[in-house]
């Protein structure tokens, strides 16, 4: 980031996350500017997904400080694993959306209800408003004709596109993609990447993407961060990381995935 960069939207300052004896994030520092598209790459177990899961408040962390849009994740005097009240966590969540590796659509709801349910129940939109929003989003991901289907009737690629529409229906400022194409058959990866690629043009949407699709990461990212052992080992523009990685671990990793 340059000197005249805007104030960061997301800021990890010395965050440490442990699962029992295992340290997943180790004194982790990371900032994301509003509207920035950042790709996190690295070997499995290096902490990439944990960063997203902490941002979505699916995992607590033990030490350090994390803020999003000026909101601190932990409240002074907060209790429980998150050291924050449910109400506070819900305020944070109102800014963040997430797309999961295994889609996690609600199997008992039609495609339309999958997308419209949270806007109705959480944002308080009327059914009609929420459905109008859902129709627009489903058209955007190319699934307008599937709105009355159930998830079990869709291919993996279609399910993931519905999941993207569902996340967007909440109008998050930050959208997190946790290996969105890793569970897909190879021939279905393209359609999902195409949708994510379109979103990368949305100026105001901040995107964090964990992926193993290196060519795609290069096309859509403003910045690529290479993770190793719970820290960012090297980061920079896609060109810098993919054409001239400076750290030996980065070179080793890229050599192994870009055969």
């Amino acid at each position: 980031m340059t000197d005249n960069a805007p104030a960061p939207l997301i800021q990890f300052a010395g965050v440490t996350k442990r699962f029992g004896a295992l340290t997943v994030l180790d004194d982790f520092n990371f900032e994301v500017a509003p509207g920035e598209k950042v790709t996190l790459i690295g070997p499995s177990g290096s902490g990439k997904s944990t960063v997203l899961r902490i941002l979505m408040t699916l995992e607590p962390f033990q030490e350090g400080r994390l803020t999003l849009a000026g909101l601190s994740y932990q409240e002074p005097g907060g209790t429980g694993p998150f050291k924050a009240s449910e109400r506070h966590l819900r305020e944070i969540r109102s800014h963040v959306g997430m797309v999961f590796q295994s889609f996690n659509l609600f199997p008992h709801m039609s495609v339309m209800r999958n997308v419209a349910e949270a806007p109705v129940r959480v944002l308080g939109l009327s059914r009609d408003e929420a459905q109008a929003r859902a129709v627009d989003l489903l058209a955007m991901v190319g699934l307008a004709d599937k709105k009355d289907h159930f998830p079990s009737q869709l291919s993996g690629g279609q399910q993931q596109r519905v999941a993207i529409a569902r996340a967007l229906a909440m109008r998050p400022r930050v959208l997190l993609f946790d290996e969105p194409t890793s569970a897909l058959d190879p021939q279905l990866v393209g359609e999902v990447l195409a949708v994510i690629g379109d979103l990368a043009h949305e100026h105001d949407l901040t995107m964090l993407l964990v992926t193993h699709e290196m060519r795609f990461a290069r096309e859509v990212s403003d910045r690529v961060c290479f993770f190793d052992k719970g820290r960012i080992c090297e980061q920079g523009s896609p060109e810098a990381i993919f054409t001239a990685p400076s750290h030996p671990r980065t070179r080793e990793f890229l050599a192994s995935v870009l055969r």
């Binding site: 659509l105 349910e117 996340a167």
Partner: peptide, 27 residues
């Protein structure tokens, strides 16, 4: 994962129970 998806959509605990987990559990 269903509960996590509900959380990511900012459903409260009651809504998650009534609209997400119970309908699947009843089956």
């Amino acid at each position: 994962q269903q509960v996590e998806a509900a959380r990511a959509l900012n459903f409260g605990r009651w809504h998650t129970l009534v609209h997400i987990t119970l309908p699947q559990a009843i089956i």
